[in-house]
């Protein structure tokens, strides 16, 4: 038993992470209900943002952490889904749910088309071409004012109706938490499926996977489309959160932010991204209320993480836990 467990833990640490979904799920339910019931609107808003960003960051982790595809253009799918949904709902007056479904389809098709180009490249070139492709969309959003509203964005998308109106901050949070739970479960199942292990194989040694007969390109394309789907889910939730989408939903800044969430949390662990998202929202909103020099503080936090927890917070915690357990034995 011992050695097997060791091997698993030293592999990618699912050994320790296994109880997490259960515990994490329970904690989430309690937190969400408490927040929805007791906290004022602003705190509710922050928790909602954390959950949305967590979906977004986990979707990027599928690429960065599991497949070894360092994307710096992940905002493309977040923004594409949000813009498509907003435009369909506003200009064609489609019902929200239909617009959202088509918005997600746009993100997935966008990922398919973009990756026909992007997957020709690897590593740093992949990073740059994903950045460039997302910049093309951003540039369209900024300059094609008649359609996109340009810099001023598209306001006025009402929150959807689902039996009851999802208007109130508390109700909305519960809805977002549900979407979050389902998304997490789907992504978690995915990375633990044979498909997920194949992705890790590609990350570790692409040539060997090819030799073993895997169609590496097809795996990469498929995971990119899945990642785009969940990025799109996050984009549409964010659109509804503020009834607003603007070019920053397609920006490099957002792509860099979500990459930071993944890296801070621990790439390749899925749940690390949740931590990264929580930390990001806190840093972004709380530190900037404390000090005018918040950018400095945020930067310093990233530097400290890079130096002292280079593999990310979750891995750092796991190593501490393991070493303390080792000592107590």
């Amino acid at each position: 038993m011992g050695p097997i467990r060791m091997a698993r833990a030293s592999g990618w640490g699912e050994g320790l992470l296994r109880p997490m979904p259960v515990a994490g799920g329970a904690i989430l339910v309690v937190v969400v209900l408490a927040v929805a019931a007791f906290l004022p609107a602003y705190q509710t808003e922050l928790v909602t943002q954390m959950l949305i960003y967590a979906i977004f960051a986990m979707s990027l982790d599928l690429l960065v952490g599991y497949t070894g595809l360092p994307s710096l253009g992940h905002s493309a799918y977040f923004g594409l889904a949000a813009y498509a949904t907003a435009l369909l709902a506003l200009k064609l007056a489609l019902p929200f749910w239909l617009a959202a479904a088509l918005g997600l389809a746009c993100a997935v098709i966008g990922a398919f088309l973009f990756n026909l180009l992007a997957l020709r490249t690897a590593r740093a070139y992949y990073l740059m071409i994903t950045l460039a492709l997302s910049q093309v969309l951003w540039s369209l959003a900024v300059s094609w004012t008649d359609v996109t509203g340009g810099d001023n964005g598209l306001p006025g998308i009402a929150r959807p109706v689902l039996g009851i109106r999802l208007d109130g901050a508390g109700v909305w949070l519960v809805f977002v938490a549900l979407v979050f739970a389902v998304s997490t479960l789907v992504m978690w199942t995915l990375v633990r499926s044979p498909f997920g292990y194949a992705l890790r194989g590609i990350r570790e040694n692409e040539e060997r996977m090819k030799a073993l007969g895997y169609d590496v390109w097809r795996y990469k394309l498929l995971v990119s489309m899945v990642a785009a789907f969940f990025a799109g889910v996050a984009g549409i939730l964010f659109l509804s959160l503020n009834s607003f989408v603007g070019p920053q939903a397609l920006s490099i800044a957002l792509s860099a932010q979500v990459l930071l969430m993944v890296l801070v949390g621990a790439a390749g662990t899925l749940f690390g991204s949740i931590f990264g998202a929580v930390a990001f929202v806190l840093l972004q909103n709380v530190v900037s209320s404390w000090t005018e020099r918040w950018l400095f503080v945020v930067g310093a936090v990233y530097v400290l993480f890079a130096l002292f927890a280079p593999a990310g917070a979750l891995v750092w915690v796991r190593e501490r836990l393991r070493s303390s357990r080792g000592r107590s034995r």
Partner: peptide
């Protein structure tokens, strides 16, 4: 005093903080 960070999304969040918190 709050900084918009020159980001529309942050501006909305900060406005919610100022108004509702």
């Amino acid at each position: 005093i709050e900084d918009t960070g020159n980001d529309p999304q942050t501006t909305i969040t900060k406005a919610k903080k100022l108004a509702e918190s």
